[in-house]
């Protein structure tokens, strides 16, 4: 009897600890939004930029994607890496990717990420040798934001980048 009671108690404690472990998981949620760039010309001739929600776009339009993250879990999220492919039909606009406490790297194929100056590609020359060039922003296919600080439970932030519709 004593043994049976001990098993029941132990099982209860185990279950409690299991539930406690689930509750302590991090849970990052991402939300994506997009806006379109408008140039507003004032009466005095000065211009200012305004971003507005959009449903459609034209070739040449500048779009800004914002990715908001929130830790809806009970534990810190460590080493978050947010990755977003540059949407097909658009090209990335240089120096527009950013975010608070985020290191930004880029890729030309979605696997190997590097900072912009270090991102190179090789072109085979007529003599058979390969020549290395620094990739231009229009060539980037993926963007990665590596957050430098853990995201605490309830913590939130955002990263963003801009593209031009081809």
């Amino acid at each position: 009897m004593l043994v049976r009671m001990l098993v029941v108690v132990l099982s209860f404690v185990f279950c409690l600890s299991a539930f406690a472990a689930n509750d302590e998981k991090p849970a990052l949620a991402l939300k994506m939004s997009v806006e379109k760039k408008f140039v507003v010309k004032e009466e005095d001739g000065k211009t200012r930029v305004e971003w507005r929600p959009l449903e459609s776009s034209n070739p040449g339009d500048v779009l800004r994607y914002t990715i908001t993250y929130k830790n809806e879990g009970k534990a810190e999220a460590h080493r978050p890496n947010i990755v977003d492919p540059v949407p097909a039909g658009t090209t990335y606009i240089g120096n527009t990717a950013g975010g608070k406490e985020a290191e930004v790297t880029f890729s030309l194929e979605g696997k190997k990420f590097q900072t912009a100056p270090a991102l190179t590609y090789k072109v085979k020359q007529p003599d058979g040798t390969e020549k290395e060039f620094v990739a231009t922003p229009e060539m980037y296919t993926h963007i990665k934001w590596t957050l430098t600080q853990p995201v605490p439970p309830g913590g939130t932030g955002s990263v963003e980048f801009q593209v031009r519709v081809k």
Binding site: G60, Y69, R79
Partner: peptide, 28 residues
Amino acid sequence: IMPATAVHATGTPAGTSITNQASVAYED
């Protein structure tokens, strides 16, 4: 007000859907 538009010679065809989805990987 006008869109910040610079029409490119090679434009994305009308009707094209531009989709975007981000992902995140992290640890506890």
